[in-house]
Design a protein around this nucleic acid. Structure first.
Lengths: 211, 211
DNA sequence: GCTTGCCCATGACAGTTGTCATGGGCAACC
DNA sequence: GGTTGCCCATGACAACTGTCATGGGCAAGC
């Protein structure tokens, strides 16, 4: 594994996407302290990530998963097709095991939770830029333990709408299904998650990053 | 309003409390770029805030509301009694109107959401240190509109336990109440929030910062 | 002292939800 | 071509939930 493709002296060109302006600015300040790293673009959501990455010849994109409109996972997928030279380092607040798999499925090269000490961020950027992979160690173990998503597509869809407490009739209407079908999907999901009702099931699935 | 009590040349001594290590480190880097501000202590939750503030003669404490064990509101209240010379600037991810009132009730001098541009953070620290107040403008308007919490203490307590979807029987057991009483409190809260069931009511109350 | 508001409790009733059994349609796979 | 798994649907039953009426205890305020 080499040390990156940059000519000596040129810093790694980084894009930063996070919906919280203050955090974004602070991370930029942190990274710009490193002489070999330069934040050349910032975004508050995932919509403009590809365009910005192309325009600024970005080498590493630091993407938050939770963003409005277009989230980090979707943005990573778009980058892979639209500008595959750009490496993706995913950063997230929540350590949901399912996110790790989803991130790598979307083409990410690295995955960090925001609990990680800030001192490791620059190192992660360098490693990803050099073609390596970065995985939060605590999360990796958890992910191997947890196994993958046992829920079917429909169950996920129904569960995610049940999260906010909407009555079954409302979910059924939104999905153009019969009330009984929704109840069956929910019942199945409740069984798979070991929950007592659809709300607990939705929470459990959310915790795991399944929905 | 004066410019603070520090002798000329001495930077403002700041404490940073945020449960996300990476964000904490990044904010520290950001603030330390300012010549007149120095981050002298950091904490990952609210438990040690008072002790740290005293030990490092902290002048402004920057507290995240969402923290494990002891949250920012509680930490602010402890600071007010334990080390009142220290000003509190509350920072939070979520713009819940009720948080603003709760923050000032707890003795905070300022309130920012993390959507605020990072460039304004240092200015807010200076203003708070100088004895002024800082309020996120968008949130202030929202808060005046929203009015205050119409829920009784018991309703809040019951609602917050209903959030995760626990069955009523479980809530009743945890609170040493009869099932019927819990149902009555919930029914009342559902009416006040205009929700269709306890889950929606809990979400609505949470959105408002009531629970 | 009376009223008001909150707390707790009970019982009855209707509506919603979770479970189960059953069955048809469809695509993937051996 | 048969099996398997997912999707959709229906109907019946038991359990849970939300509403309402009613009543007692208690503290605060007029």
């Amino acid at each position: 594994m080499n040390q990156g493709t940059n000519p000596a002296g040129l810093p790694i060109r980084v894009l930063l996407a996070d919906d919280q302006a203050m955090v974004r600015g602070a991370l930029a300040a942190l990274l710009n302290l490193e002489p070999d790293i330069e934040v050349v673009a910032q975004a508050g959501d995932g919509r403009d990530v590809v365009a910005l990455a192309v325009a600024h010849r970005v080498q590493v994109a630091l993407l938050d998963i939770q963003m409005p409109h277009v989230d980090g996972l979707e943005a990573a997928a778009r980058l892979r097709t639209g500008f595959p030279a750009c490496k993706v380092l995913m950063v997230t607040t929540f350590d949901r095991p399912g996110y790790l798999r989803a991130a790598f499925d979307a083409g990410a090269s690295g995955f960090l939770v925001k609990d990680t000490p800030s001192s490791e961020l620059a190192a992660a950027v360098r490693r990803v830029h050099a073609g390596g992979r970065v995985v939060d160690p605590s999360l990796a173990a958890q992910s191997l333990m947890g196994g993958s998503n046992p829920l079917t597509d429909r169950e996920c869809e129904v569960l995610s709408r049940a999260q906010s407490g909407a009555p079954i009739a409302q979910i059924a209407a939104a999905l153009h299904l019969s009330v009984g079908t929704v109840r069956n999907h929910l019942s199945s999901a409740i069984g798979k998650t070991g929950a007592a009702n659809r709300i607990e099931a939705a929470h459990a699935a959310h915790e795991q990053g399944w929905i």
